[in-house]
Simulated scan of single mutants.
Amino acid sequence: MSEKHLVCQGATYQCQFGTAPDKLKVLTQTKRYTNDGKGAEKLIATHMDIGKTFEKNTFGSCSKMNNNPCQVVVSEWKAFYENVKISENNGNPLLEDSKATCPVGAPDCISIIFHGQTAEISQQNIDNADKQVIAQMLPGFNFDDFDEEEVEHIL
């Protein structure tokens, strides 16, 4: 994948003919998450997420439609990760450079602004952290003095 992020629910996209961004909504699978410790928010998007797959389904005004309201309909995704398949929808994960085609716009007219992933520290990260590195980064702070709930609150 060459250091490309997977795209997940909440990723922000923009059409080159539109005036406003919209957020991707994954509707084709319900089991595979990325960077989401609780498995509740960041479903992995795939090339099977076509049709009306955005939260508002609009990129504002569309210059291809004489500045009338855009009505997003994704007909195809390109540049997805072909080496992995999500079994639930037989889809390949979208990458941060994946582009979508809208029948009104043009091929590859919809591109990503933000992939949707954010760093999230979990108890597993803390358990696996090098104690010497933590001691240098946070002198005087000892994670062992706190339980899991207190650490989540601190972070």
Rank of each mutant, 00 (worst) to 15 (best):
K38G: 10
E88R: 03
F17Y: 15
A40K: 13
L155F: 15
R32W: 11
F143A: 09
T19N: 04
Q9N: 13
D147R: 14
D36K: 05
Q16G: 06
G39Y: 11
C62G: 09
R32A: 15
C102G: 05
K31N: 10
D49E: 15
Y81H: 12
S122W: 08
H115M: 00
G116V: 05
V133I: 15
A100I: 11
I126V: 09
M1R: 01
L43V: 13
G18L: 04
T30L: 01
T101M: 07
N125E: 09
N142Y: 10
F143P: 12
A106T: 06
F17T: 05
R32I: 14
P21A: 03
Q123G: 07
F114R: 15
D147P: 11
Y33V: 12
A79Y: 07
G51K: 08
Q71V: 06
F54D: 07
E120Y: 08
A100P: 02
Q29H: 12
F141D: 07
D49R: 02
M48L: 06
N90W: 08
D144M: 06
P107N: 05
I110W: 00
H47E: 14
P103D: 11
H115G: 01
K42C: 14
E152V: 01
T53Y: 01
N35V: 11
C70M: 05
K23T: 11
F146K: 11
I154P: 00
K23F: 07
A135K: 15
N68E: 12
E82H: 03
K99G: 04
C102V: 10
M137D: 11
A11E: 03
E76P: 01
A119R: 00
K4I: 03
N142I: 08
F114S: 14
N67H: 10
E3R: 02
T101S: 15
V73M: 03
Q132E: 11
F146E: 08
A135Q: 12
P69T: 09
P107E: 14
A119Y: 10
P69I: 06
A40G: 11
V74K: 02
A106C: 14
E3D: 15
C102Y: 06
L155C: 01
D108I: 08
Q29K: 05
K131S: 08
K78W: 04
L27S: 04
F141V: 15
T101I: 03
F54Y: 15
H47Q: 14
N57W: 12
Q71I: 05
T12H: 00
I113S: 13
H47R: 12
C15Q: 02
E82D: 12
A45D: 02
Y13T: 07
L24G: 00
N57C: 14
L155R: 02
D108E: 15
V7C: 06
N67C: 06
F146A: 02
C109G: 07
K78Y: 05
E150D: 09
K56Y: 13
G39Q: 06
Q123F: 00
N67R: 07
Q71G: 06
T101K: 03
N35K: 10
T46M: 11
K85S: 07
A106R: 08
V72C: 04
E82M: 04
N83E: 12
I134T: 10
P139R: 09
K99F: 07
L43G: 03
Q14R: 09
F59Q: 00
D130T: 13
K23P: 03
G60F: 10
I154Q: 04
I126D: 02
D36W: 12
S98M: 10
A100L: 08
Q136D: 08
I110Q: 02
A40C: 05
